[in-house]
Design a protein around this nucleic acid. Structure first.
Lengths: 154, 154
DNA sequence: CCAACAAAGTTAAATACTTAACTGTTATTG
DNA sequence: CAATAACAGTTAAGTATTTAACTTTGTTGG
C-alpha cells in the first residue's frame, strides 16, 4: 500500500509525540540521576526565570506553551519547594511577578550545564540549517491549522 | 545576541510543543463542534482500532506512544462509552484484545473524514519531501537522545 | 464619569500521564 | 522439571492539563 500524503502527515504527528517524549524522558532521567526533586514541567518554568527573573504568570504560560491554570499549579509546587515566590506587581496589580529565591538561583548553576549538555548531545551530527528547515515545516503546520501562537524567545 | 546551536535546539523543543498543541487543539475543537463525547486521546486509540481491530493493549500503547497504564485507563473510558470491549486472547492469556463494538465501528464512518480533512488541511502548501526531511531530523534527535522506540505504522 | 469589556490569576472537576508495586501468564534455561 | 526471567495488564498515588466559572484589576468609549 503506497503511503499517501495524508498518511505521511499522520506519521508526522506520531513522530512528533515520540520526539517530544524522548526529550522529556531524557530530562527526567537526568533529574532523577542527580536526585533533583523536580519534574520536567517545573524545570521549564525555572528555565524561563533563569533567563529573565520576575516575569508574570501569563508570560510564563506563553513562554512554556502552557495554560495559565497549569502555571498557577506549577508555581504553587515551586513555591512549596522554596524555589520561587510570588510578588504583586505594583505597576499593574492584576499581575503577579514570579521571583527566584536564593535556592532557586543556586539551582541554575547546577542544572544549566546539564541542559546545555542535552542540547549539545541532541544536536550531534545535525546541521543547524536542517534544524531550521524542520522548524519551518512545523511552523507551517501550525499556521495551516489556524493557530497563531507567538514565537517569542524564552 | 547571536543564537548558538544550543539556542536553536532549545527553540526547536518549544516549537515541538507548540505544533503538538496545535494538532490537539484542532482535533478537540472539531470533536466539540460535532458534539462528540470523546477526547483527543480516546480518538488516538480508536484510530488504531479502525486500522486493525482486535490488537492487545501493549500494542496500542506502542502505536499511540503511551504508557500501558495510560492505555488501561483509556480503554476503561472507551468501554464505559460502549465503544470497545476487552476479550481475553485464548492463544496467550496474558493479552487482552481490544475489540470495537458496533457503536465503535459506526463512529469510524463519521470521524475518519474529519481526520483526513485535518491531515489534508495541515499539509497544504507543504511538499511531501519537506515533511519527510523534517521527520528525519526528529528521528535523529530521538536517536541522539538514546531512545530506540520502534516506528511501526498504526 | 461609568458601563462594558478585557486581562491576570485562582479554583474545582474531569481527564490524562508517570512511576512503582503487584498479579497472572508464558518462556527460558540450568 | 523447577526456578527464574520476561511480558501483559491492573492499581494507586502523585503530578499535570484542560475547561469553565469566578474575582480582581485595568482599559476604553459613549
Amino acid at each position: 500500500m503506497p503511503a499517501t500524503k495524508n498518511d505521511i502527515v499522520a506519521e508526522f504527528t506520531r513522530e512528533l509525540i515520540r520526539v517530544n517524549t524522548a526529550f522529556r524522558q531524557y530530562i527526567q532521567a537526568m533529574l532523577r540521576r542527580n536526585n533533583m526533586d523536580l519534574t520536567f514541567e517545573m524545570l521549564q518554568v525555572l528555565a524561563c526565570l533563569w533567563n529573565t527573573d520576575g516575569v508574570n504568570q501569563q508570560e510564563i504560560a506563553n513562554l512554556t506553551v502552557k495554560d495559565k491554570a497549569s502555571v498557577t499549579y506549577l508555581i504553587d509546587n515551586l513555591t512549596k519547594r522554596g524555589l520561587v515566590v510570588r510578588k504583586e506587581d505594583e505597576g499593574d496589580r492584576r499581575n503577579k511577578l514570579v521571583l527566584l529565591t536564593d535556592a532557586g538561583k543556586a539551582l541554575k548553576t547546577e542544572v544549566e550545564p546539564w541542559i546545555q549538555e542535552m542540547h549539545a548531545f541532541a544536536g550531534v551530527d545535525m546541521p543547524v540549517q536542517a534544524i531550521k528547515d524542520c522548524m519551518q515545516v512545523m511552523i507551517k503546520f501550525r499556521e495551516n491549522l489556524g493557530m497563531e501562537i507567538s514565537s517569542d524567545n524564552c
